[in-house]
Amino acid sequence: MAIKDRARDIIGKEVDGVLAFRPEGGSHVPHLFNADDIDQMAGEYPAGERYPVSSIVRRLQAARPGVRLAVVVRGCDERALIELEKQGQVDMEHLVLLGLACDGELAGTCGCAQPYPSEVVQGEKVEGGLDLGMVEKLEGLPPGERLDYWLSRFAACVKCFGCRNVCPLCYCKECALDEPGLVDHGEQPPLLPVFHLIRAVDMAGRCVDCGLCEEACPIGIPLRTLYRKVGEVVESHFEYRPGRSPDKKSPLSVLGTEEDVT
């Protein structure tokens, strides 16, 4: 309950609102609490109920400039916020982070590199480890089989756009996936593999490995595997991991210097 206690301390003083979760019928749903309803805030954070809080923060800050917010963040949420700030989408000055560490079971199934934020208010820190098992397994296959693997997964896509809608780093007002010249409208499955590769290359320098995309996919396409590989590619060529540094910008978002390209 440490996060709720901290929230109660700061509401109405350092912050105007706390973005956290409200219990409702057995679930915990996102809610912006103010001083009047802060006591209804949930004190527990089940692993199966992760939401793109950084997207909600971005929209709240855009519509209410200068608002002071606190938000409950896991490791991945903090990475997303750091990356969004570098892209000018979020203002960390007016944001208080209430850090939540993921428990051992979630850290194991999720498989991200750091299942805790930089400052933990609630939860025991558990060391994670980037799970590249599936990536390595696929790299061991011959190219023909690898292509069959990917196309057979992509072929069941129903174009729900859940992966894009839930991604904290997807905020473009005009999305390439809606562009009729790139992806035909009204086709299901969408053009393969360009539909999924468009997302994959866009995730270069952006994906913070939160896993919300794969959770939102009704088909269970192994998106995280693909985006993790893209993350490895970016790290190997540019020594860059999204969400780590608040200062170093993604090399794919700036032209850079001559050293970068020689």
């Binding site: 973005l19 996102p30 209410r64």
Partner: peptide
């Protein structure tokens, strides 16, 4: 009334 809420 909260400024941002979600309704299941």
């Amino acid at each position: 009334m909260s400024d941002y809420r979600t309704v299941p």
